[in-house]
């Protein structure tokens, strides 16, 4: 029973990947492809956020700032270091990880609401830094005319974002494989242990501070890569990414998708990116869509407090319970039978 469920899951994942790979052949329109690319970027940010928020239970509200650090690191490295855009994307990840380590220093000494305050303040700090250093960062104007991606003489601006689509999808796939690896490792297990019961985790030899530092560094990396790609793709770095709307949109992706899961936030990122765009294109709903999404989020969380992914997980858990009950019944029968036989 459990096996068939996990087989089921592999099938759904495989099907989703095949659909995603074939999508650009069906969807030729630049705008639609653009939405998919944005959705994939948000999916990376949301699923990596969930590593620190959902798996490790750190109330980290500075995650979108890691994304912003990636955006600016990529933009600045092309502008001032003349970095190749591919390298710039990677540098976005490195810079975000460094930012993660920086945030970890106070975070590993704090608990609960103070973690929220410090991480939130970190985002504001980076924003103020970007705004105040306008001769470098362009201030509120941002950085424009960032060079576009090129590979073997192919300019990615061609073919209606065909190439960009696959870079975005490829990065999301790599990030997801990486997350799966982390979550299933002993390190991932220790994160859940820490989240579940910190004191007990220490009593079982888990170094709390070190694991928190590591998870912030690790979860920031692909978030920064997503930011780097975002900058290279849009060819702009704008301070708006540090704003509250982006923060709450990505947070709702994590919460609606389900904390403590990888695929929940990814699915929610795709759904919410499209929902937000669709609603925005309806006459008069330009501003109201944020409210509609918020209402949808409340409704989902009311019925599924652990997010949409919990529907799936609940089925698996029920299966496990039924399975252990089945085994118990079978064993009892066996004992009864053998008792009957010996009589």
């Amino acid at each position: 029973m459990i096996r068939s469920l996990s087989g089921n899951r592999a099938f759904v994942l495989g099907a989703a990947l095949v659909i995603a790979v074939l999508m650009p052949f069906v969807v030729q329109d630049t705008y639609w492809r653009h939405l998919f690319i944005i959705a994939f970027i948000y999916a990376m940010v949301a699923s990596n956020w969930d590593l620190s928020l959902g798996y490790a239970g750190i109330f980290n509200f500075g995650h979108v700032a890691f994304f912003g650090v990636g955006v600016y690191a990529a933009a600045l490295s092309t502008k001032f270091l003349g970095a190749d855009p591919w390298i710039a994307i990677f540098l976005g990840g490195v810079a975000a990880s460094l930012a993660g380590a920086l945030v970890a220093l106070p975070v590993i000494r704090l608990k609960g609401i103070y973690v929220v305050l410090v991480t939130f303040a970190f985002g504001q700090l980076v924003l103020q830094l970007v705004l105040s250093q306008s001769e470098i960062t362009g201030g509120t104007q941002g950085i424009v005319r960032i060079p576009a991606l090129e590979a073997f003489g192919y300019n990615f601006l061609r073919d209606f974002k065909f190439g960009y689509y696959y870079v975005a999808l490829g990065l999301l796939v790599i990030s997801t494989i990486f997350l799966r690896f982390v979550v299933r490792s002993d390190f991932g297990m220790s994160l859940r242990a820490l989240r579940d019961n910190e004191e007990y985790a220490v009593a079982r030899g888990i170094p709390t501070g070190l694991q928190r530092l590591k998870v912030l560094v690790v979860s920031a990396f692909f978030t920064g890569v997503a930011g780097g790609f975002f900058a290279i793709y849009l060819r702009v770095a704008s301070p708006e990414i540090f704003g509250f709307p982006v923060q709450s949109l990505v947070l709702s992706m994590v919460l609606v998708g389900g904390t403590g899961t990888i695929y929940g936030p990814i699915a929610a990122a795709v759904i919410l990116t499209f929902a937000s765009e669709m609603l925005g294109s309806i006459e008069g709903l330009d501003e109201g869509r944020v409210m509609l999404i918020a209402v949808a989020m409340i409704i989902v969380l009311l019925f599924f407090p652990n997010g949409l992914a919990s529907i799936w997980r609940r089925r698996a858990q029920r299966a496990a319970l039924a399975d252990s009950a089945d085994k118990a019944v079978a064993e009892t029968r066996l004992i009864e039978n053998s008792a009957g036989a010996s009589r």
Binding site: R192, R195, N197, A203, G205
Partner: peptide, 15 residues
């Protein structure tokens, strides 16, 4: 004291 969301076996593997 336990890790409530982890399976029984994972609880022990952790130690």
């Amino acid at each position: 004291a336990e890790f409530p969301t982890m399976t029984a076996r994972e609880n022990v593997v952790c130690g």
